[in-house]
Amino acid sequence: MEKRSRSFRVLSVFFALFVLFLYGPILTIGILSFQGPQGGLTFPMNGVSLHWFRDLFQEQSVGDIWGSFRRSFALGFMVMITTVVVSVLGGLAFRKRFGGATVLFYLAIASLVIPSILVSLGVGLIFNQLGLPIHWASSGFGSQLTWTLPFGLLIMFAVFNRFDKSYEEAARDQGASAWQTFAHVVLPIIAPSLLGVALFGFTLSYDEFARTLLTAGSYNTLPLEIFGMTTNVTTPVIFALGTLTTIFSFCIIAVFFVAVWFMSRRKGKVSDAGKGMV
């Protein structure tokens, strides 16, 4: 085996420390959530128990956690479906030339860089002034789309830049209609990348805080509920909740990766589907 240079060793250590920096804190609260009933927010561990997880499952002990989880899950699902459909349509539109394409592109980019609190404040104000009820499924849903759609669109750009147009031409030469070409040729090819868009749509919505702060109405989503807890809960129950929802996020990510892997394996060739996700 080739001997690696000194820079490789130094940078490996740097990278390992970076990964530790990324994951260390979350692992720590994972451990601390198993504190004994008398345990506090920091080490040392005061015994080991499932006390704080049990606490979470007891109704009304610390707010409406399960209700907020259900809402966040439903909202994440809505945002995911909408992001995939709207981004694919947008991606298809940008393959052709159309009037206003540049404006729409810059709007999407602006959507990424404009501070979230402005979206939150502005949407809240509009709904108030129009007399519309503020609700996570209406105002909250729309606000979150301003964060997930640009990511979806950028992924679609990456996908269509790599797309081999000759597949479509072949289909058209064989007499396939525009819809048949899309449904039977384009869609199956881009499907693994759509899972990437879906992953962004769901997870970014599920964890979104700033954009839902003023647009969720009287029913909190999970991140809002957790933030509320930080001001008045001083027991490891908040670590238990953090651990559970992080495990949930990891599971969602894993499901998407397995699905991508499975789909590209079925296609029988190594695809660059994973690239669309990054």
């Binding site: 947008g90 298809l92 539109a93 052709k96 009037g99 729409l104 709007l107 979206v119 502005g122 789309l145």
Partner: peptide, 30 residues
């Protein structure tokens, strides 16, 4: 082609107008 492209871009344009452009205008007004 042009009309098809507009129809495909419309959902994204509508969302961004309603939840990005309009809110910013509203903030400026308020």
């Amino acid at each position: 082609k042009q009309v098809t492209a507009w129809l495909q871009a419309a959902p994204m344009a509508v969302v961004l107008l309603a939840f990005l452009v309009a809110p910013i205008i509203m903030i400026v007004i308020v």
